Amino acid sequence: MTDHLGYWMRMVSNHVSFAFARRLEGKEVTVAEWVMMRELQDAGPLAPNRLAGRMGMTRGAISKLADRLVAKALVTRDDDPADGRAHVLALSEAGSLLVPDLARLADENDEAAFACLTAEERAQLDRILRKIAGAHGLKSSPTG
């Protein structure tokens, strides 16, 4: 089993993900909620179906995630100005203020996880992972 690259990728991925989840606990935000907030920061207000496509999630999963973030007052759900029957999700003011703090935690998590690599090794790993993702058409945001 340990001869498989997938085994080692999963081990490292789990370590990085779980460490980040622990860092986020103090902010009362999950990794999936962070990913949604980052998508909304990058894209601006989005219809749930467009957000679902960007994140590689179902519309139902996005709705549940949005409900949690709306309840935490980190995301707003407003009528779509282009279609009164639909709505859009956007970061609230509190959500917009929290994103940079969460980004700092993500950066610190990456630094801790990959501190054993030189800058050249990090760049090489980044290129390799992006190449694998591109070869498989992986475009959605990882959420967990």
Rank of each mutant, 00 (worst) to 15 (best):
Pro45Gly: 07
Ala123Leu: 14
Val29Leu: 00
Phe20Met: 15
Arg77Cys: 06
Arg59Asp: 08
Asp101Arg: 15
Ser92Asp: 09
Gly44Glu: 02
Ala71Phe: 00
Met11Asn: 07
His4Thr: 04
Val35Tyr: 02
Glu120Arg: 14
Arg23Trp: 11
Thr30Glu: 07
Ile62Ser: 08
Ala47Met: 08
Asp79Ala: 14
Arg50Leu: 08
Gln124Ser: 12
Val31Thr: 14
Ala106Phe: 11
Ser13Gly: 10
Ser96Trp: 07
Glu33His: 02
Ile128Leu: 13
Ser63Gly: 06
Ser140Met: 10
Met11Glu: 10
Phe114Met: 15
Ile132Cys: 08
Asp110Leu: 15
Glu120Pro: 02
Leu98Thr: 06
Glu120Asp: 15
Ser92Trp: 03
Asn14Gln: 11
Asp80His: 05
Ser92Tyr: 02
Cys116Arg: 07
Glu93Phe: 13
Ala52Val: 06
Ser13Pro: 00
Ala82Phe: 14
Val16Trp: 04
Leu40Cys: 05
Trp8Ser: 04
Thr58Lys: 14
Leu138Ser: 03
Leu5Gly: 04
Asp107Tyr: 12
Ile132Asp: 02
Asp78Pro: 01
Arg85Phe: 01
Thr30Pro: 00
Gln124Cys: 13
Lys27Pro: 04
Ile128Met: 12
Arg59Met: 08
Gly137Met: 09
Leu65Gln: 07
Arg104Asn: 09
Glu33Leu: 02
Arg85Leu: 02
Asp3Ile: 12
Leu89Tyr: 13
Asp42Lys: 15
Leu138Cys: 06
Ala113Asp: 00
Met11His: 05
Leu40Ser: 06
Met11Ser: 12
Arg104His: 12
Ile128Val: 14
Met57Tyr: 04
Leu117Tyr: 15
